[in-house]
């Protein structure tokens, strides 16, 4: 069974008089262990789609089944808890709490899940080591580079043991070196630990790493295809 099954998803925004059809009948399935890029021109609905899947916003029509539950029917209170337990998020920016260290940021989400301190400290350490930040665990976000901050965000997203991770343009603010580094970590987690990633991007070099590419245009899926990632020399 698919971990995410989307049917007939529609979402419109009303910006003053004009109605903008951000999503116009989306049907998609996602399987465990996917490494999928959602691409498309600006305004094509990538963010809207990811927000719907992540339960951050509600569609006008259609269903989103995650692990068999239709999240469009959950109350906002239940939805918050659902997000906490099932979905990992990496945003383009503002991912971290500035007053907490890298380690504390990773711990924070486990604190929300009421995981005992000793367990969460151990896991936060392991995760930060696995994203290559074992030596920066006590640094605050302001002392980390953009790429390092995004790696902390990936560690934080993993910490809650979600079913999948949604990343809306995670590399948009990064230079090419940091982009390659972050992608490498995501690929390795996907390959070695079967972590499911669904990310949107404008960056062709990022797209090439995906195993599946979904192209949106005007709120519709126009292409959905497999991709053999380019192996770097």
């Amino acid at each position: 069974m698919s971990i995410i099954a989307i049917e007939n998803l529609e979402k419109s925004y009303h910006d003053s008089e004009i109605e903008v059809r951000a999503l116009n009948g989306i049907n998609l399935n996602f399987e465990e262990g996917e490494f999928t890029a959602i691409v498309g021109p600006s305004g094509s609905g990538k963010t809207t789609l990811l927000n719907m899947i992540g339960g951050l916003d509600k569609p006008d029509r259609g269903t989103i089944l995650i692990g068999g539950n239709d999240i469009t029917r959950l109350s906002s209170r239940k939805l918050i808890d659902f997000r906490l337990r099932n979905i990992g998020f990496v945003f383009q920016s503002y991912n971290l709490i500035p007053v907490l260290t890298a380690m504390e940021n990773v711990e924070f989400i486990m604190h929300l899940q009421k995981i005992p301190r000793a367990d969460r400290e151990k896991r936060a350490m392991e995760l930060l080591e696995s994203v290559g930040l074992g030596d920066r665990i006590h640094s605050r976000p302001s002392k980390l580079s953009g790429g390092q901050q995004q790696r902390v965000a990936v560690a934080r997203a993993l910490a809650s043991r979600p079913a999948f991770i949604l990343a809306d343009e995670p590399t948009a603010n990064l230079d090419s070196q940091s982009t390659r580094n972050l992608l490498g970590i995501m690929e390795r987690l996907n390959h070695e630990e079967q972590v499911t990633f669904i990310f949107s991007t404008h960056d062709q070099r990022v797209v090439e790493k995906a195993h599946r590419i979904i192209v949106l245009e005007d709120g519709k899926v126009i292409t959905d295809r497999e991709n053999i990632p380019v192996v770097e020399p």
Binding site: G54, I80, R83, L84, F89, Y94, I97, I109, R156, S160
Partner: peptide, 16 residues
């Protein structure tokens, strides 16, 4: 605003 939105997004409930 953004930070509080991020906290709500990742699953910090209204009470917290």
């Amino acid at each position: 605003t953004r930070e509080l939105g991020m906290l709500a997004a990742i699953g910090m409930n209204k009470f917290r």
